[in-house]
Amino acid sequence: MKTLLIVDDSTTIRNVLKTSMHNEYSIFEAENGEAALKIAGENKVDLFLLDVNMPIMNGIILTKKLREQTLYKTTPIIILTTETKPEMRQQGKEAGANGWVVKPCEPKQLLGIIQKMIGS
């Protein structure tokens, strides 16, 4: 079973994502960028789902840090955020993210995107 890492400071959002994806994927979760880096260091993650606005380390910086690691150079990273500003989207793209999904999103739609990226 492939592994997802959900990084969001909201328990609600983490639960919502787990609800629609726990059957398909093995799921790790983290409240912020720093905790996510720790988990990503200890486990092999196949896809990252990151929020942007988080305490300690935000999603953009986390994306950059992940891309610095050889293991995660090409691992899909999807940003899941309420941010709609084009400049933020650009920042995410430049940091190395593969997708930008604006909340609220249809869980099935998101699952479809993930399945296209890494399969079931």
Binding site: S10, T12, I13, V16, S20, P104, C105, E106, P107, K108
Partner: peptide, 13 residues
Amino acid sequence: IDQFSIILQYFDI
């Protein structure tokens, strides 16, 4: 549950 997921996201946002 899918519909509720969207409501919960609104709630969070």
